[in-house]
Amino acid sequence: MLIDALRRRVARLGAPPLITFYDGADGSRVELSAVTFANWVDKTANLIADLGHDDGEPIDLAIAATHPAHWVTLVWTAAAWQRGCPVEPGVTGADLLVVGPGDERRAATTVACSLHPLGLGFPQPPEGAVDYREVFAQPDVHDPSPLGESTLWAGSPVAPVPASDDRVLLVDPDAAQALSAGLLAPVAGAGSTVIAIGVAPERATSIAAEERARRL
């Protein structure tokens, strides 16, 4: 569903913005085209395989609970599905766990994400975890799982959503809205999403005007 749609989006409309992300905590703005987003997904999917995690085995995305609308969370969700892996938004005991900054929980294999606007790693290596910065060493190769892509989120298949051709603004969306309206809908169509987290109401209004986005 998502991965096939993303490949089609890259082929027909790869260069324009797909996701624009604002973080009120540090004032950053990150813009990802479909090509750039797909590249992050491919590299992350290859990292999952390189870490020895089997296709089809669940992945615990703790960052989906702590940072549900971050663009890195959306990349990890898509990459897990590309490997045929169900996504659990939390900690359920999966062999592979993905955490955000300051999260000390660990599993058999843990990847820690700094969530730096430019994707940079931690100043000091995270104890007991792989720094997500290692993703930069992965090849830019699309490697789909022979099992096919997963659509499982928290134990249930994600329902198809209507394609969107609009540019919309989501302010502090929960994980479900970030995934459906923020990623699945625009990927299926020609739309794009502006996601703003931790911004004041007046800043959200100015972002909508600056980005020419309709607030949902």
Rank of each mutant, 00 (worst) to 15 (best):
A112P: 06
D95K: 10
D26E: 13
G148Y: 06
G84K: 04
F136H: 11
P58I: 12
G93R: 06
D26F: 12
D95A: 15
V158C: 08
T92P: 00
G90H: 02
L96M: 04
Q124H: 08
K43D: 04
D50L: 04
W81C: 09
Y132I: 00
R133W: 13
T151V: 11
L152I: 15
H116Q: 08
P146H: 09
D55T: 06
F37H: 00
D131I: 12
A62F: 05
D50Y: 07
A159V: 08
P125A: 14
K43W: 02
P58T: 08
G27N: 12
V91C: 08
A163Y: 02
W76D: 01
E149P: 06
I59K: 03
A163R: 02
D26W: 09
C113V: 15
G56A: 11
A94V: 08
L51G: 04
V158P: 03
D131A: 10
V158I: 14
D140P: 00
Y22P: 04
P157L: 07
E127V: 14
H53G: 01
F21Y: 13
A69H: 04
A62P: 02
A64H: 10
G56N: 09
N39G: 15
G102N: 11
A64M: 14
A25V: 13
A129F: 05
E88G: 10
S156W: 05
D23R: 14
F21H: 00
Q138W: 04
A159R: 11
A62L: 13
V41S: 02
N46C: 12
W76A: 05
T66K: 05
D131M: 11
P86G: 12
P125F: 06
D143R: 14
P58R: 10
V72T: 10
L32I: 03
T110D: 06
T20Q: 14
S156T: 14
A45G: 15
A25E: 14
A154D: 15
A25F: 13
G52H: 06
G102W: 10
A78D: 00
W76K: 01
G102V: 09
V98L: 13
L32Y: 03
L51S: 02
H116E: 12
A79R: 05
G155A: 13
A62R: 15
L32C: 03
V87D: 03
P123W: 08
G27K: 11
W76V: 03
P89L: 15
D26P: 10
I63P: 00
A34H: 01
T110N: 06
T109G: 01
T92N: 11
G27D: 10
A69P: 04
A62H: 14
G155E: 11
V75Q: 03
L74D: 02
A108N: 06
L147E: 09
D50S: 14
